[in-house]
Design a protein around this nucleic acid. Structure first.
Length: 271
DNA sequence: AAATCTCCCTGTAGGC
DNA sequence: TGCCTACAGGGAGATT
């Protein structure tokens, strides 16, 4: 599943190939994603160019002179750069066809992603308007989480995965960072101390920053390859390891479900 | 307001 | 081997 580092790695991978090139055509083989592909994208982009790219949470933003494509990869989505000699494969739903035979190809087997159009200012689009701060920004830190969490009884794992609190902390990083901070995922967010939020935010920032660095080493994969950035290489401490021994103390890791999501933790290291 | 539930979809894994 | 079913999961929207 694409986490924030993969989205950022995708953005960096496609940016130099699509910016400045004329859009000849947008080919949509399957418009039914999470929401239908915006008609403005299917019909209205010909002759325009992407000027720059950006990212907000896990949303990729592709700016033209008249507006902005909002693209989300969902659970199984990917984008890559191919040339016009490469036939689309199964689940290659959308092609942005540029001059010089360059194609930005969107692939998404489960179709939980979306490709939407927004006029300026895109920050006021309803999908982006109420999002929390970026995890790597200075606005996100122990003081912020501490203040936001007072009075909240929701489990801390649900709290840090809430995109209105902070963007880009998916299930994998929530599990991993809570383990590193020694906090049980069930703990009420409002009862976690400032000091523990200090540890937690530090680990969230570190794990995401490191994953972006690792992804950067595999940028070449975005051109003609399978579009898979390198976060798969990273070793996971708890995620997917329920029932296996804790890498720190050897206790058996517990797996529970919170909000229909798997949570794995060490009953000894996390309190 | 906050917490919880539902739904979208298909590849994969497990059972027989 | 192959068929069948259960299930995972980001995140918005509905419901409690």
């Amino acid at each position: 599943m694409p986490e924030l580092p993969e989205v950022e790695t995708s953005r960096r991978g496609i940016d130099p190939h699509i910016c400045g090139r004329s859009i000849l055509e947008v080919r949509v083989r399957q418009p039914q994603l999470r929401w239908p592909v915006s008609p403005e994208i299917i019909n209205g982009l010909t002759g325009q160019r992407f000027l720059r790219t950006d990212r907000r949470g896990k949303y990729l933003l592709l700016y033209t002179e008249s507006g902005c494509v909002i693209l989300h990869l969902g659970m199984s989505g990917s984008v890559r750069i191919v040339d016009n000699s490469q036939e689309p494969r199964k689940h290659d739903h959308v092609d942005f066809v540029f001059s010089d035979g360059v194609i930005l190809r969107y692939h998404d087997p489960r179709r939980f992603g979306c490709i939407l159009w927004s006029k300026f200012p895109v920050e006021e689009h309803e999908l982006l308007r109420d999002l929390g701060p970026e995890p790597l920004s200075d606005a996100f830190g122990a003081d912020y989480l501490y203040e936001r969490s007072r009075g909240r009884k929701t489990p801390i794992k649900s709290f840090i995965m809430d995109s209105h609190v902070v963007v880009g902390v998916g299930n994998i990083y929530a599990n991993e960072s809570l383990f590193m901070a020694g906090i049980r995922p069930q703990a009420a967010a409002g009862s976690v101390s400032r000091a523990r939020y200090q540890a937690l935010t530090g680990h969230i920032k570190a794990v995401i920053a490191r994953a972006i660095e690792v992804g950067g080493t595999t940028l070449r994969d975005f051109v003609g390859g399978d579009g898979k950035p390198g976060y798969f290489q990273q070793s996971l401490l708890v995620y997917g390891r329920g029932g296996e021994p804790c890498k720190s103390c050897g206790s058996l890791l517990k797996e529970i479900r919170q909000n229909q999501r798997a949570s794995v933790y060490c009953p000894s290291c996390q309190r």
